[in-house]
């Protein structure tokens, strides 16, 4: 396995990327490209638009890496935030909002290669935490984050006052944070299949 920068932290890689070190960008892509593409694909439901969003996000990282402040944010959060913003901008621009984000039937299967062991575990862990949220909170998070709906669109779609939507999003994210932070949740990493 040839991973020259494999021992470096994500944040150290961003510092190298700020010095125009292409191998650092490649390593960051190898770590987060798949999650980034999965996110863009989920929001955009279109492989070509998803590729565009991921490429733009990684190039934004490349151009602005010098401005990254590791004390303020994890590098992985920054990367995925860039991807999400691109994807949401695109979905709103294209006016092709997919509000069927609660439907899971059409989701493609994923092969379980060695390299994906960590991603698979992350997925199971976050999915398990999501399942533990009250339905209304989970619905608000999924429609906003995966569906790309704004809070006012959410209020309209769900027929609820804006204040209710705000508190569902805040309550949902806060509870999710607790669930993901609890050491006990690693028990729910157990595969359900």
């Amino acid at each position: 396995m040839n991973r020259q920068l494999a021992h470096l932290s994500d944040e150290a890689l961003v510092v190298l990327a700020a010095r125009s070190e292409e191998s650092a960008l490649a390593e960051l892509y190898d770590r987060y490209g798949r999650a980034a593409y999965g996110l863009a694909y989920r929001v955009l439901r279109d492989p070509v638009l998803a590729e565009d969003a991921v490429q733009e996000a990684f190039l934004t990282l490349w151009r602005t890496a010098a401005r990254f402040v590791p004390e303020r944010s994890k590098a992985s959060t920054w990367i995925l935030t860039l991807v999400h913003r691109r994807a949401v901008d695109a979905v709103r621009r294209e006016q092709r909002r997919r509000t069927d984000s609660l439907e899971r039937a059409a989701e493609p299967s994923v092969e379980g290669a060695d390299e994906d062991a960590w991603l698979r575990l992350q997925r199971e862990r976050v999915q398990a935490a999501l399942r533990m949220l009250p339905d209304a909170q989970r619905e608000a998070l999924e429609l906003a984050y995966y569906g790309g709906l704004s809070q006012s669109e959410l209020a309209e779609r769900l027929g609820q006052p804006l204040g209710t939507i705000k508190s569902r999003m805040f309550g949902g994210l806060s509870r999710l944070r607790e669930l993901l932070g609890e050491p006990g949740t690693e028990m729910s990493w157990t595969s359900t299949t």
Partner: peptide
Amino acid sequence: NDTAASLAFATVAPAPPPRLRAAIL
């Protein structure tokens, strides 16, 4: 932000095409 970004890991999607990595680099 950290929590919202963790939602990215819950998605199920095909692997990105290899050309995407090459195009970015």
